[in-house]
C-alpha cells in the first residue's frame, strides 16, 4: 500500500484567549483544533466542511505548515514534516500548495500576472528566466486565460480570473497536494462552476490530491470523493461523499445538511433547528460490538469506525 499524499495525525492547535478579568486579565486555552486526523489519498479530493470557528481553515493552514501545530503530525507521502526546519521544509513546499478564498489580497498588485505565476519557479530557482515566463504563460492558457494576460495586473481581472491566476501559480510547481480554502466562496454563481470544473480537470490531468475546505455543501457534493465534517475543532464525521449526504450519523452533519437551501420553491419546508445542546445530546450511542474497528467503551465521545470507510463521533457502550 502506498502512503497517502497527505495525512494528518492528531493535529491540535491551542491559542491563549483572554477570558475576562476587568482588573487582572485571565487567560484560558482555546483549543481551535483538537486532535484532527484525516487522510487525503493520492489522486483524490477530500472535502473539509464546517462552519466558522470549526477549525477547518486552521487545520488547512497547519497541513501546509503555514501555522505551527501545537501537537500532532503532518505526513506528506508518508514523511513526517511537522518537525522540519525552514531549510529542510523547502523541498516539501514544492509538493504542497495552497489557494485562498480572497485571491485579490493574495496577488501582489505590483506584479504582472506572468511574474505572479512564475514566482514559485523563481523562489525555488528552477529554469532560466525565459523558461519561467514561458511556463507561466503556458499555465495562464491552461487555466483558461489568454497568453496576452501575462502583461496585465491583478486589478484588471474579475474575481474568477484572479482565482484562475491563483490556481496557476499554485500548480506551476506541479505539487502533489493542493489545499484549497474556500476558493469559490467569493465568486458569482456562474463563475463558481467554471472554477470547480477547472479544479476537477486539473486534478484528473495531474493526479493531484486536494484538500477542499468549504462550507458550501452543494459544491462539496459535486467535487469531492470523501467528506470530513468538523465541529468545534473536532472531526465529528468522515465518510465517502455520498454516504455523508445519504447516511450521515452525526446530528451536527445532519443539521448542516438540513440547512442547505432548497433547489425549487415547491420543496420549501418549515425547518426545526437544532441547538448546540440538542446536537450534544444527539451524539449517537453505539455498542462496541457493532463497530468495524475495536473501541473502548467510554462516556466521552470518540471517533469510531462504523463501516471501514465511515467514521463518526459516538459514545461507545459495551
Amino acid at each position: 500500500m502506498t502512503a497517502p499524499a497527505l495525512e494528518l495525525r492528531g493535529l491540535s492547535k491551542k491559542f491563549p484567549i483572554r477570558v475576562g478579568g476587568r482588573l487582572l486579565p485571565r487567560y484560558a486555552e482555546h483549543v481551535a483544533v483538537d486532535g484532527v486526523s484525516l487522510v487525503v489519498p493520492t489522486n483524490r479530493i477530500v472535502g473539509l466542511v464546517g462552519e466558522s470557528g470549526s477549525g477547518k481553515t486552521t487545520t488547512g493552514l497547519m497541513a501546509m505548515r503555514l501555522i505551527e501545530p501545537t501537537s500532532g503530525q503532518i505526513l506528506i507521502d508518508g514523511k513526517d514534516i511537522s518537525r522540519l526546519g525552514h531549510a529542510e521544509l523547502k523541498p516539501f513546499r514544492r509538493q504542497m500548495q495552497v489557494v485562498f478564498q480572497d485571491s485579490y489580497s493574495a496577488l501582489d498588485p505590483m506584479m504582472t500576472l506572468a511574474q505572479i505565476v512564475a514566482e514559485p519557479l523563481h523562489i525555488h530557482g528552477l529554469m532560466t528566466a525565459r523558461a519561467q515566463t514561458e511556463a507561466a504563460l503556458g499555465w495562464l492558457e491552461r487555466v483558461g486565460l489568454d497568453r496576452s494576460y501575462g502583461q496585465r495586473y491583478p486589478h484588471e481581472l474579475s474575481g474568477g480570473q484572479r482565482q484562475r491566476v491563483a490556481i496557476a501559480r499554485a500548480l506551476i510547481l506541479r505539487p502533489s497536494v493542493l489545499v484549497a480554502d474556500e476558493p469559490t466562496s467569493a465568486l458569482d454563481v456562474s463563475v463558481k462552476a467554471q472554477i470547480i470544473n477547472l479544479l476537477q480537470d486539473l486534478q484528473e490531468e495531474m493526479g493531484l490530491s486536494i484538500l477542499f475546505i468549504s462550507h458550501d455543501l452543494s459544491v462539496v457534493r459535486s467535487l469531492t470523493d470523501t467528506v470530513v465534517v468538523m465541529h468545534r475543532g473536532r472531526v465529528v464525521e468522515q465518510a465517502p461523499t455520498e454516504a455523508i449526504f445519504l447516511e450521515s450519523r452525526h446530528p451536527y452533519t445532519r443539521s448542516l445538511l438540513d440547512a442547505i437551501p432548497v433547489l425549487h420553491p415547491r420543496d420549501r419546508r418549515r425547518r426545526t433547528f437544532q441547538s448546540a445542546e440538542t446536537i450534544a445530546t444527539g451524539i449517537p450511542r453505539l455498542s462496541a460490538r457493532d463497530l468495524a474497528a475495536p473501541a473502548m467503551p467510554s462516556a466521552t465521545p470518540q471517533l469510531v469506525t462504523v463501516t471501514p470507510d465511515h467514521r463518526v463521533e459516538a459514545i461507545v457502550t459495551a
Binding site: 462552476a193 476537477q200 459535486s222 469531492t224 455520498e242 449526504f245 442547505i260
Partner: peptide
C-alpha cells in the same frame, strides 16, 4: 443560471458553467 447550480445530484461530476465573465 439555474443549470449552473451545483444541485443535489450524487457523485462527482462536472458542472454546467456559463462561459465568460459578468
Amino acid at each position: 443560471l439555474l443549470r449552473s447550480i451545483p444541485g443535489h445530484a450524487g457523485g462527482r461530476r462536472r458542472l454546467t458553467e456559463i462561459k465568460g465573465a459578468s
